[in-house]
Design a binder for these strands. Structure first.
Lengths: 184, 184
DNA sequence: CTCCGCACTGTTATAACATAACAGTCTGCC
DNA sequence: GGCAGACTGTTATGTTATAACAGTGCGGAG
């Protein structure tokens, strides 16, 4: 149980560091215009350990550009990235995370760790099928479906279990290394 | 397949008009303090056809009280109602809706109609089981799970189908009438 | 009865998230 | 050149949410 690379059926890489590069390839292939600005935002995602709020991106961007960037610039870029499925919005966090399954449609759930703030995209057709079936049963016709779970990722769950093996403790890490982007 | 009253296993009433009264009973039974302010907010939910934004509640409350109410008042009340499971937050709308399954834990999905703006709470253990299983498979330990679907409710889907019986059918409402509670 | 703590509400200010509207720039094309 | 379109810049503002502290009312301990 030591692998950090989450290997899955689809064979996706899930490597944040190469995220921007992979999107770039995808754009080149599809004739989608990946401008310098958009590329820089992708780089910011690549360098982040967790989901980023729009204003976190804004700050990072301003730092990188050396001059103040305004909100619309960021939101427009996010719109582009969302539209092409390169990032997802995490509604419960008002934050954005790079898509871990570039190329496939997004049929998964988003799992957000309360301790480390990272998010993880878990693909599973069974969940989506169950949702579709349930919706159909009540006459509802879904157009988009969002599944977000909060809890502890494998790593943090193990750390908790180890750290408090005998005692017990308040489920949620306090100031445990919250990566850059996480708020709340 | 003709019933409009969504009758479900649990036998819940789902009647907005009696919502406040039912919460009141629940509070009385459990020794939970339902103050006049909280009761008024419940009444506002009872009188609404769809989910309400915090600031919509704020306006309704201000109107009802005859004087301006400040945001913290509303948010504190919502905190109380959320905490006790009397209302749910719809993250994808930043809005709040009365719980349709008072008394049970919330093990369902929220279906929001793009056309009429109403939300509907669909209970289904199968979905939650599938999610739990999927999460477990990847080592994630969920604490809270949120499922939100957007699309067309039975009623609006039927209306659409009727309106455009012979021609196009993409299943997705365009700019169809949006009512009271819905924003954006 | 007084004092104290607690739960609730009021009030002011501000933070955090998001968009509208319009202006400027750059590029490719006729 | 001149135009159209896509992209970005800029200013202003709208919307959602919280921090911090003050007041009020009530019940219990002393």
């Amino acid at each position: 149980m030591l692998e950090t690379k989450t290997e899955r059926v689809c064979g996706c890489a899930h490597d944040p560091a190469t995220f921007a590069a992979r999107v770039e390839q995808s754009c080149a292939r599809d004739g989608v215009q990946l401008t310098p600005l958009r590329r820089r935002v992708l780089d910011i995602f690549s360098g982040s350990a967790g989901p980023l709020g729009a204003y976190a991106i804004l700050e990072a961007l301003s730092r990188r550009e050396g001059k103040q960037v305004a909100p619309p610039t960021v939101y427009r870029t996010l719109d582009f990235l969302l539209e092409h499925g390169f990032v997802h919005k995490i509604e419960s966090l008002n934050a954005y995370a790079p898509c871990e399954h570039l190329g496939h449609a997004h049929h998964g759930m988003l799992a957000v760790c309360d301790a480390c703030g990272r998010s993880e995209e878990i693909e599973d057709e069974a969940v989506m099928r169950a949702i579709a079936a349930t919706a159909a049963g009540s006459g509802f016709m879904p157009r988009t479906v969002m599944v977000e779970a909060k809890g502890l990722c494998r790593r943090c769950a193990e750390r908790e279990a180890g750290a408090t093996a005998h005692h017990r403790n308040p489920g949620v890490a306090s100031s445990t290394s919250a990566p850059s982007g996480s708020r709340k």
